[in-house]
Write a protein that binds this DNA or RNA. Structure first.
Lengths: 258, 258
DNA sequence: ACAAAAGTGTTCGATCTACACCCATGT
DNA sequence: ACATGGGTGTAGATCGAACACTTTTGT
């Protein structure tokens, strides 16, 4: 969606290629150097921020749709998106909300009011995590801005999106030990210090630096390599790599949380 | 939906009260005396069975909709339904499927083909469990029959419903120790033998009769009462009751599985 | 007294937690 | 030699798994 014609066509005819009444909203977390952030965007005609979201094509499955939506809205590719919950209910979208009224004015009240987009919508929640320093989100035409917000400074979002953020973060924390979540945040070879910082930051608590590697190695999620990295005037750390197969086994068995 | 007029009206005008393109399908498990069953129903015009499902009213939230749908289709009330996953994708419903073609014939091909019901649909999966000996499912007008099927003799179901059954059973097993699932299957006061049988049957494996009560009591999920029940020519068992508050705490902390 | 079901305790190994010091490197 | 960050081991507590016999009761 990058030209004005495409946008107009989407408002009028989108229901032919997309399934109406159901959307996907993605909570994209960004990690870098002990900081956890959330990607929020502001859409044309809205005062408040929201999660990047969109509609599902009639030819797509849900996971592919989530990937495409994030790519279109933010130009971020290659995310490992995870479905966590579906949200609905008449209170999801408030029609007397100033933002919604504003949106109608921007697009010409009558046109948008009768659009398929304005009908009641149920939303499937997905989350993902990426390295926010490597990724420059680019807004598309519907989006004024998309940016990384500090996780504990997320503003009041549109609709029920604050609730989505809360529940997606819970899901992310629960799944940290049995989905290869950290794999997306690290190079192929990484040091214990690096992965340790990630787990501490995502879980929001400190993890013992002696017990933590034991657990990961015991679970078989990472392997030590016979290499070290030179990091200047300090001891060279060993490098580790992920063992992707073990995640599956861990997932099947179920694993306790830290 | 109990008269023919209501059914016709639903096919033609249902989209005004229900949200199109999205449905709820419920996997209702039934337990009694070491047996685990699944409620399957056969709809008018279909050869194969499916899970009871339906559409969401525009005024409802998702959990309420699931409860209402089960009540309407099967006359089962008071279930504790749990959302576990949402299913989508173009392959969910196959239009060249004999059952679908059959359905069109039954309702008059042209009428049903242009109905809102025949458009592509995404489905939110819910599950619940109840005592199948206490509950007599009653089909409504759209439903020819609904009955309990042995869990390992579930036939080929419509659409992707076999996949739903598989994933809902996984979810049920995972959540057995931290949602009050067994509470629905037992009287207020129950013996250890009774709850033990439930856990063994749902998990599909044997659980040590000495370790099992220790775990439940340690977790605080059940309390021993100062009562016994007379069961004929045998030793009278102690009675226990659930401690509903502890489930919440257990849920927050996360609990390992058996 | 016997049949049928209830109920209980201990040991072992695995795992989790807590805790403090030495190592390697570059300047 | 010192500053900086990297890396390690052990002891105690807790938890989960395995295992067999005694108690109660009605007939």
């Amino acid at each position: 969606m990058n030209t004005l014609e495409e946008l107009e066509d989407f408002i009028e005819n989108g229901y032919k290629t997309y399934i109406p009444h159901i959307s996907i909203d993605c909570a994209i977390f960004g990690y870098h150097d002990h900081q956890l952030k959330l990607l929020i965007s502001r859409l044309k005609g809205f005062d408040r921020f929201c999660l990047p979201g969109g509609y599902i094509k009639r030819t797509e499955n849900l996971d592919d749709a989530a990937t495409r939506i994030v790519e279109e809205r933010t130009a971020i590719t290659g995310l490992y998106l995870q479905q966590y919950k579906t949200f609905g209910g008449p209170e999801r979208i408030k029609w007397n909300d100033p933002d919604t009224i504003n949106l109608m004015k921007v697009h010409g009240y009558e046109k948008i009011r009768s659009s398929w987009l304005m009908d009641q919508t149920i939303s499937i929640g997905y989350y993902a995590i990426t390295d926010f320093s490597l990724v420059k989100p680019q807004p598309d035409l519907m989006t004024i801005t998309c940016e990384w917000s500090d996780i504990d400074k997320v503003p009041d979002l549109l609709f029920d999106h604050n609730k989505m953020v809360k529940e997606s973060l819970q899901a992310l924390r629960l799944q940290l030990y049995y989905y290869p979540i950290a794999e997306k945040l690290l190079p192929k070879k990484f040091s214990l210090t690096e992965i340790h910082a990630i787990y501490e930051t995502i879980l929001g608590k400190t993890l013992d630096m002696r017990n933590f590697p034991k657990k990961l190695i015991f679970l078989g999620l990472i392997n030590r390599l016979n290499e070290k990295r030179n990091i200047g005037p300090h001891r060279a750390p060993y490098l580790y790599s992920f063992n992707a197969k073990k995640y599956k086994k861990a997932l099947e068995k179920g694993i306790t949380l830290g």
